[in-house]
Amino acid sequence: MISLPFIAVVVLIAFGLATVLFRKNMIKIVMGVSVIGSGVNLLLVSLGYRESAIAPIFTSAETTLMVLPTPQALTLTSIVISMAVTALMLALAVQIYRHYGSLSTEKRRLKE
């Protein structure tokens, strides 16, 4: 029952999470976050997939099985949002580099 896309989802999320947990470079953390995002998007798309179904366009469609349209709409929204998030985080990382000359998360000023 568990098919290849779901294994890929788990692998992507695990890689992304491992990057965020163990890499100290801010750019790599941003990469990790967007890899997790891709994993979640893949989950959404593969949830709506039906084998040997057609694209969900109703104009002159035959009455065959269609792929679910909602997850694709969700995925598009979430891709747009994750682009905004990635851009914002990279911009913040650039500003931090300009102020402190370092991208390491261990050089932090706010603690305890």
Binding site: V20, M26, I29, V30, V33, V85, L88, M89, L92, A93, Q95, I96, H99, Y100, R108, R109, L110
Partner: peptide
């Protein structure tokens, strides 16, 4: 600098 740091942490 520190406010950028706070925003980055929050965002991640």
């Amino acid at each position: 600098g520190t406010s950028f740091e706070a925003a980055f942490k929050y965002m991640v």
